[in-house]
Design a protein around this nucleic acid. Structure first.
Ligand SMILES: [Mn+2]
Ligand SMILES: [Mn+2]
Ligand SMILES: [Zn+2]
Ligand SMILES: [Zn+2]
Lengths: 138, 138
DNA sequence: TGCCTTATGCAACGGAAGTGCATTATTTGC
DNA sequence: GCAAATAATGCACTTCCGTTGCATAAGGCA
């Protein structure tokens, strides 16, 4: 897929084989994925390379880290034109305690929070835990 | 302080020496504390005992765990009449990236969140990172 | 006092993030 | 095209924190 290479090139990431594969994997998944998820999927590859690949994607701005409270860092591709900015791009994350999956609820942008005097907000993390729509319908 | 023993007794926690000391420590601190914080303060005591003490306090409902995104679990005493319920007791937590302290902003209760169809919320975690009032005034 | 429940102390484990460094691949200058 | 420089990869190892198992000590109750 030339599309993949374009995405990487556009974000100044050199398109190595592994990076293309990981990007493809992220694109296909509709849920947030962990390093272990990637590691299990590409079981011939090295964990450190995958670790650094995911972090490169975050550093270059094509994906964002998600702390869903499980203690396992998750990753998901950013939306088009996302800059991970506090007032425009940050969104709710939902973690299902049944299927253990975490999803971006990008439609739910985090509202501005009015802190007490003197506090300055630089980042916000909003995570809801519960039952996801799939698990709920069963 | 008989007060300490009353708090424990009222919550069905046997008032051992260590528990009284830890409770005192929590009461004095205005910020959320980690297991390591307690461990450093009582440096003659055992880490596991402190760990279980903190978790007993949570289980019995006198304090709550805080996941501030640093990867280090914090603890803070609950307010009066708190039952850690999603719609009435959950509040904002603020983590200062300068002094590395985490505080409960109990005045800021987490508003009800309207999820997409099918999702059921059981718990919410809202953490703001930035500069706290103390660090900001310097 | 003696029994039973609970708390404590010590040791060890496990998962996950992160780092150092040698090796391999790729780009760049000539 | 070739050599040097730069970047990516693979392997080993570390660190940090949370957690558990188990033996011992302490405390409550009959
Ligand atoms: Mn997201
Ligand atoms: Mn709190
Ligand atoms: Zn689910
Ligand atoms: Zn501060």
């Amino acid at each position: 897929m030339q599309n993949l290479e374009k995405i990487l090139a556009h974000n100044h990431i050199k398109p190595t084989a592994m990076r293309l594969l990981v990007l493809q994997f992220l694109l296909n998944k509709k849920v947030a994925i962990s390093l272990t998820d990637v590691e299990n999927y590409f079981d011939q590859s090295d964990r450190t390379t995958l670790y650094r690949t995911l972090n490169t994607f975050v550093a270059k701005g094509i994906s964002h880290k998600i702390d869903d409270g499980t203690g396992i860092t998750k990753y998901a591709l950013c939306e088009e034109n996302c800059h991970c900015e506090i007032n425009t791009d940050l969104h709710l994350h939902f973690h299902c305690t049944n299927c253990n999956e975490t999803v971006c609820i990008t439609d739910y942008k985090i509202p501005q929070i009015h802190l007490p005097k003197g506090y300055i907000a630089e980042n916000v993390n909003l995570v809801v835990k519960g039952i996801c729509d799939k698990c709920n319908c069963k």
